[in-house]
Write a protein that binds this DNA or RNA. Structure first.
Length: 255
DNA sequence: AATCTAAGCAACCGCACGAGT
DNA sequence: CACTCGTGCGGTTGCTTAGAT
């Protein structure tokens, strides 16, 4: 029995979000919080599916998002974490407060991978490409004599598995230690940065938007920045619910 | 100026997982 | 235990922009 689709796609809007849609979503979430993503578009008056709203909020509208390009230091940390965690982007992103998994994944696919290739490192294995080729050659050679060595391989495989298990265990311990120390660091960062955070906003535009030159994406001046007038950017959802909805605390910052 | 190409990124899709029934 | 539902995640697509020719 197949699953039902996450939403009835008939009549739903797709593609880039307009400023108006962003406004509706942000206003709704800020005033009501998120109980159920599926209900959000209906209650907010949006012709989008819940998934799309969730994605837009997480990747773009969340008040605690950090905007701007990733620094070289952050890139290096991504490489280090990728070597340890692989393509677990959300896990990697959790080490970078204010960064999204999508952002890091995009960065990896568009820049970091190439950067590693350029310096001769395989982005998948994080080993030097030369070394990888060598080991592949060795594998081919060993395949040729596979039948002869079958008995040896069988007897060795168990000890290899034991070694691999021990390594995996050690790696997991290191990971936990690393994550624990990072949690502390992240907490300190959040405490230090969160209070004065201004969320830059860089919306995408629909065709209708592009008609109006004042909202052209090429016009830096027109790129609005949403910011809280009187509310800390980092606050719990239940605090949002207590706010007076007459006081519209998102405003468009003109530069 | 026009066209082509590559890079960057927002958004979509399908699957997996955990909670609830 | 089997199933549904909501959500999160990773892979992929397709649009926009910038740079090259």
């Amino acid at each position: 029995m197949g699953r039902q689709p996450c939403c009835d796609k008939v009549g739903l809007k797709r593609g880039p979000w307009t400023i108006e849609e962003d406004h509706k979503l942000v206003t709704f979430i800020v005033n009501n919080g998120i109980q159920c993503w599926r209900m959000v578009p209906k209650l907010a008056g949006l012709l989008r599916c819940g998934k799309s709203c969730r994605l837009r909020w997480i990747n773009y509208l969340r008040p605690d998002l950090k905007r701007g390009a990733l620094t070289e230091m952050e890139e290096n940390q991504i490489i280090e974490l990728h070597a340890r965690l692989g393509n677990r982007w959300s896990k990697i992103a959790s080490h970078f407060p204010g960064r999204t998994d999508n952002e890091i994944k995009n960065r990896w696919n568009t820049r970091i991978k190439k950067r590693l290739n350029l310096i001769g490192i395989d982005p998948v294995t994080h080993k030097s490409i030369e070394h990888k080729e060598k080991s592949e050659t060795n594998n081919m050679e060993s395949n040729n004599s596979q039948n002869e060595q079958e008995n040896i391989v069988i007897s060795r495989s168990e000890s290899d598995h034991q070694t691999a298990r021990a390594e995996a265990k050690e790696e997991r311990i290191n990971e936990v230690i690393y994550e624990t120390s990072n949690l502390t660091n992240n907490y300190e960062m959040l405490c230090g940065v969160g209070l004065n955070m201004v969320n830059c906003y860089s919306p995408t535009f629909s065709l209708e938007d592009s008609v109006n030159p004042s909202t052209s994406i090429q016009d830096d001046v027109a790129i609005p920045q949403w910011y809280f007038d009187s509310v800390d950017s980092v606050m719990p959802w239940n605090s949002f619910n207590q706010l007076d909805d007459k006081e519209f605390f998102f405003s468009e910052k003109r530069q």
